[in-house]
Write a protein that binds this DNA or RNA. Structure first.
Lengths: 220, 220
DNA sequence: AACGCCCTACTGGTTTGTAGGTATTTTTGA
DNA sequence: TCAAAAATACCTACAAACCAGTAGGGCGTT
């Protein structure tokens, strides 16, 4: 939507790209893939979330290619911060895996694009340009995941509450109901109620399944 | 150890490298990092285990840079096959994560090197040359993991049996003792015994911990 | 004010899991 | 081939988890 930011009436202003990824190989790969595209300029590549945010404080950036698995902060958090504090920069998420909860969290934190790491040169370029122009670009697989999510939210609106998330985490850590009750200063009976509600919501019936869900949802 | 394979008495014969990785970015990254090294020649890059093995059948290769997470077969299996059927090719494993069980499996399948994906250009080159010359090269972090393993195997020799692994998997899938018994055509009491033995061996006392161990060991 | 949602708490009862022990058969490996 | 290891099966007992139903207090929305 932003037309001609520069006085020169270039058709495509150069897109400034910041890469945030702690894997050298991926970094190199991205640079290599982008090297041949003149519309795109990689202005910096950093290996942690904090460094990325620091860079954004001092320099203008159009696109942030953001890895999910960072050593310091979670990609989702970084994404949220960029979204709110540096709205000029649009985030394109990069990830190896296609997990529903991660995709959801990224998108709800404002990621305008989402690519899997097996992306090819052309798709990468297309994604960057599309997002820079104000659009969205999601990998085909991610789109499936998104459709899946919508389908599922339609069919099971009830999400877990804050307290329930807290308790599912403690259960998955191997703590007993009594332990949890002591830790949270509430009655064991209350913990049992929460536990029951969680299981009903998730349609499962034992801790084993619960732990897996918790891990899936990255609560652990 | 292999001196002058070629009639010309080059100090360092060109090392033929095959890359097996399903992530385009990583592929590009590796090629980019290796481009500047004349001793090394990337003869092929494929995106699945089977393709890699097919290539090996028809062409001589010195080093295989092998990703752990492949779409078709597990990296460990590929590694084992290469080791036994194409002994000329030495495997250097590439992985994002540093998990004990994966490292162990790769090494026991004959991987001569192990790098994490945040490896730098020089380390990569060094690893390739070292391994091509008949040596080993393990990332510093991997070495820690290896030491850890040795320490632990010394302190807890008892491993899980085949049946126990099977059962731990089913438990972690959320199945009850009765279900498992039915599925395996054995008495529930037997399943309980196995369950108890597993817990004793792993020194844990509830399913939550058990599921986490199972996931750690990549049984799921 | 009324409604819905969440957190809290309880009663009472059933089902699994945890923990101890023992013992027979089958498989495996030295 | 013989001993060790693994897999099978059982008993008893208690602990913990699972299931169903109910219900009051707090809090924000309509």
């Amino acid at each position: 939507m932003q037309t001609s930011r520069y006085p020169f009436n270039q058709k495509q202003p150069i897109i400034k790209v910041l890469i945030v990824d702690d894997h050298n190989l991926v970094l190199e790969g991205l640079c290599s893939l982008l090297a041949s595209h003149e519309e795109v300029q990689v202005v910096a590549a950093v290996d942690s979330g904090h460094k990325g945010l620091d860079y954004l404080k001092a320099h203008p950036v159009d696109i942030v290619l953001l890895d999910i698995n960072l050593p310091d902060i979670k990609g989702m958090e970084v994404c949220g911060i960029i979204e709110s504090k540096f709205p000029r920069a649009k985030v394109i998420a990069l990830s190896t895996y296609n997990s529903r909860s991660i995709v959801n969290q990224m998108i709800s934190n404002g990621a305008k694009g989402y690519l899997l790491k097996n992306v090819g040169s052309e798709e990468l370029k297309k994604a960057i340009i599309t997002v820079a122009e104000g659009g969205c670009y999601y990998d085909a697989e991610i789109q499936k995941t998104m459709a899946d999510t919508i389908f599922n939210t339609m069919h099971q609106p009830p999400r877990l509450t804050k307290r329930e998330k807290q308790i599912i985490k403690l259960i998955a850590e191997g703590k007993t109901t009594a332990n949890i009750a002591r830790e949270l200063f509430i009655s064991p009976l209350t913990v049992e109620t929460h536990r029951r509600n969680i299981m009903k919501k998730l349609k499962i019936s034992n801790v084993a399944a619960l732990v897996r869900v918790a891990m899936d949802k990255m609560l652990i």
